[in-house]
């Protein structure tokens, strides 16, 4: 059973999502759709609500109002482990690897955590090879450089065989060489899965995404294909300006 085999299964529809912290409207009345099998980019300046939105989708925060529809159910307010088991899996800006475990053990956590048991040797080797981690498979993950730790984290999320991958700045802090590996992994995944990609680098968003949503001060500024968004004067003003 590959997680992303279904076409209808992978879509996420966000409807009128709200989240405030004290008096601060972190996410205010945001709606958009991540269609099944598509890659949607989420951009915006610092503090525009991108990470809060991701935390709402992954169940780390409970929304004040709104719905997150996925495969006919509302994920809003469900605990993170239920959302992950439903097929929506996130990564963080920080790799959040387990330093004492080896790279192979860290990657295996993705499969173990969702209750799929220890991945078999062939599956494990294939994933490590795709991620360019074969040579360091038995190295404690804590001893790797930051960029490789980030690859470990993405491979770990893929080991959870998600239908939808929520990626929080997967390319931030990486060297050009490491970026290639991460981009290749995302491109490989998007042939069968659905992706919501948060990043600052518009070049990467344009390269990978079918559709772009722009946030500013917690609200949706606009959305559209990357080619249109990059020429939108309001986006240029808040984001590129």
């Amino acid at each position: 059973m590959t997680a992303a085999s279904g076409s209808a299964r992978g879509g996420v529809e966000i409807r009128r999502l709200h989240k405030s912290f004290g008096g601060v409207r972190a996410v205010w009345d945001v709606s958009f759709t991540v269609p099944a099998g598509k890659t949607v980019g989420l951009i915006g300046p610092n503090g525009s609500g991108k990470t809060t939105l991701l935390n709402l989708l992954a169940g780390y925060y409970k929304p004040d109002a709104g719905e997150i529809l996925y495969g006919g159910t509302d994920l809003a307010g469900l605990p993170p482990e239920r959302i992950a088991r439903a097929g929506v899996v996130r990564t963080w800006q920080d790799p959040r690897i387990v330093p004492d475990l080896t790279v192979a053990e860290n990657v295996a956590i993705g499969a173990l955590a969702r209750g799929a048991g220890m991945p078999n040797d062939a599956a494990r080797r294939a994933l490590l090879a795709e991620s360019g981690l074969t040579a360091v498979a038995d190295t404690p993950a804590g001893s790797l450089p930051y960029g490789q730790q980030k690859l470990v984290a993405i491979a770990r999320s893929l080991a959870a065989s998600p239908a939808v991958l929520l990626l929080d700045e997967p390319l931030a802090g990486l060297s050009a060489f490491e970026r290639q590996h991460v981009v290749a992994l995302i491109q490989q995944f998007r042939t069968t899965g659905t992706v919501l990609l948060v990043d600052h680098a518009f070049g990467v968003i344009a390269q990978l995404c079918d559709h772009v949503v722009v946030l500013n001060t917690g609200t949706k500024l606009t959305e559209g294909p990357p080619g249109v968004i990059s020429k939108d004067p309001s986006v240029i003003e808040v984001y590129f300006g």
């Binding site: 993170p80 482990e81 992950a84 899996v89 387990v98 004492d100 956590i109 173990l112 955590a113 969702r114």
Partner: peptide, 19 residues
């Protein structure tokens, strides 16, 4: 392994589906 991961970073394990 899951126990070690849960001790190190419980939120990470939950986000991957770990109870």
């Amino acid at each position: 392994q899951l126990l070690v991961a849960s001790a190190s970073d419980p939120d990470m394990v939950r986000a991957l589906g770990g109870p």
